[in-house]
């Protein structure tokens, strides 16, 4: 994974909500805003934003992916940090895009965006220097370290922030490095492989008997909760940023909106 060194940081932040939060998981984008504002950030949401381009990139349609990345680069101008509640979309912008634009004349524009892109937990810890999170969360939590967090600061940041909540117990599970099986269009082009991978992941997570499954990517959580619900045994899932926000609400540090 190519993670740019010395990424832009600061408290004037642009939020890239991601297409999944735009279409399904609005509360995750909301929690991202609430947490960032609590930390003193001014959050801007560029209205023209859509998708990072990863679905097309992984599907092999790099020409379509480049059109989408170029569009994103036009929406997120400026020099401040761009923050996403998704390790996967962030990785698309700082790693995937660098592959897809290797031989393109506007490579510099894309690397400029890459040099400002942050997954939100990584941003909180490494960008803003927050080391602990106050509050209580009396739950057993299984954390799925999603695949596109490999080589980034997010897994450590997530463990650090979640781990500092009072009463929270992080439980490990077997085969932690194994993928949830989602993989974008992979999940529909390879439905059997994908579902089997997900069911194995669920089985390993369930064996740890968590109250809640937490991740830094709604794509994995969408897949795992979808499989669990279809099985008839729903599994409560939450984005890590929601857990942090909920702790602030419980402590009455912010109001629930």
């Amino acid at each position: 994974m190519i993670v740019p060194a010395d990424r832009a940081t600061g408290k004037k932040v642009q939020l890239m909500a991601t297409c999944l939060c735009d279409a399904f998981f609005d509360d995750v984008a909301k929690a991202t805003v609430q947490v960032l504002e609590y930390l003193g950030c001014e959050v801007e949401f560029p209205e023209g934003q859509t998708c990072c381009g990863q679905p097309a990139f992984n599907a092999g349609d790099w020409s379509a992916a480049r059109r989408m990345v170029r569009h994103a680069a036009r929406q997120f101008t400026g020099s401040g940090p761009v923050v996403l509640p998704s390790g996967s979309c962030a990785a698309m912008l700082f790693h995937g895009a660098s592959l897809a634009f290797e031989h393109e004349p506007d490579f510099a524009t894309v690397s400029d965006l890459a040099g400002r892109t942050w997954e939100v937990l990584d941003f909180i810890v490494s960008g803003l220097g927050v080391k602990t999170w106050e509050g209580t969360c009396a739950k057993k939590i299984a954390f799925h370290s999603s695949c596109h967090l490999r080589g980034t600061g997010t897994p450590a940041a997530a463990r650090q922030l979640l781990g500092s909540l009072r009463g929270l117990e992080l439980v490990g599970h077997a085969e932690p490095e194994q993928c949830c099986g989602f993989g974008g269009t992979f999940s529909v082009a390879f439905p059997h492989v994908s579902a089997n991978m997900g069911l194995l992941k669920l089985q390993n997570i369930r064996a740890a008997e968590p109250d809640l499954l937490v991740a830094a990517d709604m794509s994995c959580l969408m897949h795992l909760r979808g499989l669990a619900e279809k099985q008839g045994h729903p599994l409560p899932v939450r984005h890590a940023i929601q857990v942090l926000r909920d702790a602030l609400v419980a402590e009455r540090k912010i109001h629930h909106e």
């Binding site: 297409c19 859509t50 998708c51 381009g53 679905p55 097309a56 990139f57 992984n58 599907a59 092999g60 349609d61 790099w62 379509a64 992916a65 059109r67 989408m68 170029r70 569009h71 995937g96 592959l99 897809a100 269009t185 529909v188 082009a189 390879f190």
Partner: peptide
């Protein structure tokens, strides 16, 4: 990933099987 891009450019039918076409999605997303 590079080989997927190559397969797409070569119009390899076996690679495309089951993957929804991305042109329409990209048009909406831009």
């Amino acid at each position: 990933l590079r080989l997927r891009d190559r397969a797409k450019r070569a119009h390899a039918a076996l690679s495309a099987r089951g993957t929804p076409p991305m042109g329409g999605f990209a048009a909406v997303a831009t």
